[in-house]
């Protein structure tokens, strides 16, 4: 794999240190995010996921440890903080509740404007971001508050994409949407990834979605990185995941049960497609015989 764009080194974060409410949210975390990869971060509520991703663009400062963006500490100076905000885009949960401008166009332009880009470049980026997220040209002059839930979500994501981040971090980007809306958002994110080569970090507790898209996964538990690896490697440890309170993809469950019933399946199976091809192998074997 190529070199990491973001490097998290020995990151520890303690909330309200020295008070009765003291809580260690992150405990000595090491994590690399590589250029152009899709990383899925999974973990139950309270595992430290949100605290971790807010460190990635200096919204929260580490209690100890550092975060390096292309080798430089992001918390080094005011300038480095500003720079990381542009290079690491962060989409929070339910981002549609952060829309505030009079028009969709102006809301998407908020980020690029804060980056002090010239007007022509801002315009280019707004239209590009709108295209990536499937926000039609005709919506740009509308008020964001007149749109449907799914459209609002896409506008909010466009607002971060317009900053053209090299790492796009999304916290539960599909939460609360219907299946059609979930699919669309995922496609939007993938379009941005394909066309710009940006790294994508998706924080989710939906195993199915993490499994089908991620190149690599990191599992957080009690403020520590419990596992990293390809989805195959991670889902091969189904029992551990379940012990951490995480649901495994339903296809992994089916595969485990099939094996228990004496059907031999190759390697790790965690998506419907993989299961189909694994079973077609068996079926093919039978037909050939």
């Amino acid at each position: 794999m190529n070199e990491p764009i973001l490097k998290v080194e020995n990151l520890t974060h303690i909330y309200s240190p020295g008070t009765p409410f003291e809580m260690t949210a992150l405990d000595n975390i090491d994590l690399d995010i590589y250029k152009g990869e899709i990383l899925g971060i999974i973990g139950h509520t309270g595992s430290g996921k949100s605290t971790l991703i807010q460190h990635l663009n200096a919204l929260i400062k580490p209690t100890s440890g550092r975060i390096l963006l292309e080798g430089r500490d992001i918390n080094e100076s005011k300038q480095s903080v500003r720079e990381v905000r542009g290079k690491v885009g962060l989409v929070f949960q339910y981002p549609e509740y952060q829309l505030f401008e009079e028009t969709v166009y102006r809301d998407i332009a908020f980020g690029p404007k804060n980056m002090k880009l010239d007007p022509a470049e801002i315009d280019r980026r707004v239209r590009l971001a709108a295209r990536f997220t499937g926000v039609e040209e005709s919506l740009l002059e509308r008020s964001p508050f007149d749109l449907s839930g799914g459209q609002k979500r896409r506008v909010a994501i466009a607002g971060v994409i317009a900053m053209m981040p090299e790492v796009l971090v999304l916290d539960e980007p599909m939460a609360g949407l219907d299946p059609g809306g979930r699919e669309e958002i995922m496609e939007n994110i993938m379009t941005y990834h394909r066309e710009t080569g940006a790294a994508i970090v998706i924080v989710t507790h939906s195993m199915e979605e993490a499994a089908s898209r991620a190149d690599r996964m990191a599992v957080l538990s009690h403020g520590k990185v419990a596992m990293t690896g390809t989805p195959e490697e991670v889902f091969a440890r189904g029992e551990e995941l379940r012990r951490m309170g995480l649901a495994t993809p339903v296809m992994t469950d089916v595969a485990d049960k099939l094996r228990a019933l004496g059907v031999e399946l190759p390697g790790t199976v965690y998506t419907v497609e993989q299961m189909v091809s694994a079973l077609m192998e068996l079926e093919g074997g039978k037909r050939r015989a």
């Binding site: 505030f100 804060n114 971060v160 900053m163």
Partner: peptide
């Protein structure tokens, strides 16, 4: 936090700038 992630700064500029910077928080 969300607006800061989009590059908003709440502690720079004069009083009017600061008041304007509050808009992205107050409206939502």
């Amino acid at each position: 936090s969300a607006q800061k992630a989009r590059g908003a700064e709440f502690d720079t500029g004069n009083l009017i700038d600061k008041a304007k910077a509050m808009l992205p928080i107050l409206v939502p």
